[in-house]
């Protein structure tokens, strides 16, 4: 099972002929992802790495089955690329691009209301179901097939958590980043719900950070709907207010969105918190063990 993508998923890459698009497409193919086509306007009819390139997404979906799109289109055009994918009926859209203007994302979200699709990102590492399929920029080899679902707002911090899990012998069902932007696609709640329903996932890790209220909403959802063992970590305890900490969405504004508030919320619902980033894997292991007793 796993969620979102697996070995049977047919994937396209929008922006396949760009430097990053091509580099990571090759890495995904090497990992076992079925990349069936690429899209770059003006390059239709060409082939790269034995993958056919089209001018538009609608041309691709006329000719073949497409389950997911991975977007590397530059920020000025990325919102339109998401809308193009959703408008062509693609159900899972993974947008890696960083730097999309907020006002563009508001329009994307409005379009998605009438054209339902699962958007992951933007400004995210993508999604991987270890041993089966990788749609994103994460290093495949640090992952191990298994039963822990990992969802995060960050990239390298997710790799850190995954690496700790793998070192402890705990494999992962699916790992993904939902993105560091203030307005983004899937929320923690959407993913936790999928993990809860996925029979293969036996435990979950949620990695949040300062800014917004996604973690608070997730905590509330966990309290009411999650039965599987779960561990939370929130980055940014030491972040000063009013400063954008790398991610556009990671900002404490008007005293709200602090790590302390989020951690307190998780704790008040009895959700186990990893005290520091070095013990995320270890904490998961302990929670799993105690759930078996």
């Amino acid at each position: 099972m796993a969620i979102l993508v697996d070995e049977n998923s047919c994937i396209i890459c929008q922006g396949i002929t760009g430097k990053n698009g091509l580099f990571h497409t090759i890495k995904c193919v090497d990992y076992g992802a079925k990349v069936v086509a690429g899209v770059t306007p003006g390059k239709g009819g060409k082939w790269v790495e034995n993958i056919p390139v089209f001018d538009s997404v609608s041309q691709v979906v006329k000719e073949m089955k497409v389950d997911a799109s991975m977007i590397f289109v530059p920020a000025p055009f990325a919102a339109d690329a998401i809308i193009e994918a959703a408008g062509s009926g693609i159900k899972v859209i993974v947008c890696i691009t960083e730097g999309i203007p907020v006002l563009d994302m508001i329009k994307v979200k409005r379009f998605l209301k009438d054209h339902p699709a699962i958007l992951i990102g933007p400004n995210c590492p993508g999604v991987i179901s270890p041993g089966r399929c990788k749609v994103g920029i994460m290093p495949g080899h640090i992952h191990k097939k298994g039963a822990i679902g990992v969802v995060s707002r960050s990239g390298t911090l997710t790799y850190e958590a995954v690496y700790q899990l793998t070192e402890l012998g705990l494999g992962q069902s699916t790992c993904l980043g939902i993105g560091g932007d203030p307005i983004h696609g899937v929320s923690f709640i959407d993913i936790l719900d999928m993990f809860e329903k996925d029979p293969e996932t036996k435990g979950m890790i949620i990695i949040g950070e300062i800014g917004g209220t996604d973690e608070e909403k997730a905590a509330d959802f966990i309290k009411n709907h999650v039965t599987k063992p779960i561990v939370a970590f929130v980055a940014g305890k030491t972040a000063p207010p009013g400063k954008r900490m790398g991610h556009a969405g990671a900002i404490i504004s008007g005293g709200s969105g602090t790590a302390a508030q989020k951690i307190e919320m998780f704790k008040s619902f009895g959700i186990k918190i990893a005290d520091n980033p070095a013990v995320i894997g270890e904490t998961m292991k302990k929670v799993l063990e105690s759930s078996l007793n």
Binding site: R153, T156, E209, T238, M245, G246, A250, N276, P277
Partner: peptide, 16 residues
Amino acid sequence: VNGAGLAMATMDIIKH
């Protein structure tokens, strides 16, 4: 540090 989340987490662990 490489990556925003890891960079925040690194600051946190120094404090820890």
